[in-house]
Amino acid sequence: MENNLVLQMKNIKKSFDDNEVLKGISFEVEKGEVVSIIGPSGSGKSTLLRCATLLEKIDDGMIQYEDVVVANTEEGGKPVYLPKKEITHVKSYFGLVFQQFNLFPHFSVLKNVMHAPINVQKRDKAEVEKEARELLEKMGLADKADAYPCQLSGGQQQRVAIARALALNPDILFFDEPTSALDPELTGEVLKIIRQLAEEKMTMVIVTHEMSFARGVSNRVIFMDGGYIIEEGDPEEVFGNPTQERTKQFLKNYQQ
């Protein structure tokens, strides 16, 4: 792996019809790094994660996971993505945790975690089950293995979703506002898990509105507004001493 970089995104542009949402975003994520992305509603944070996780196609720019260039744009041309078969392989590099969990309601908790490793990665069932049970244990959900998602609280569902993503052994995990759909008293249990993963040096990119959490957990903070990265750096710097007017304004609104 070159430079220990897990993800590189260069000059990413993305429009929906004539609404340009990402206007040239570049950033990199190193192995073991925790990056938080903050910014006002509509600034393009989710769109950026959706481009990184290949749910949306970029209009311009370059995406590279480790040494695999997934999409690249020649001068003045359209971005060229890897062929489908290789894309499937690339998907094992990353995982995504959604705001709305998106668990499979017809699978038990254990099956939610085991199904993709068995059916997508074609791994051995017994081995996958052992790992899945360990993951659930780690998430504090060992006793919920046979429950169905509808029987769990939001916080528990989100922890299952994290376990499901981790079961594929991704090198990087993306979170899109993982606690925004939760009742306030349930956010803590999910944030605790993410902190624990950070301590284990899991590479993560977290879009969040939980400012104190972002400040505490991340190695680097990115502030986005209007489709651009406005400011980026050490969390103490960005939160404690922002250089850009827009960052100051945004953070001020949050302190109330």
């Binding site: 499937t88 990353f94 995982g95 959604f98 199904h115 993709a116 059916n119 997508v120 990665q121 499901r164």
Partner: peptide
């Protein structure tokens, strides 16, 4: 919900697997 397709897509399921499973 669209989220079911998206979750399956990110997990690496093929289109056919997503539909059937």
């Amino acid at each position: 919900a669209k989220g079911q397709y998206e979750a399956a897509e990110v997990l690496g399921y093929s289109k056919t697997q997503t539909f059937i499973r």
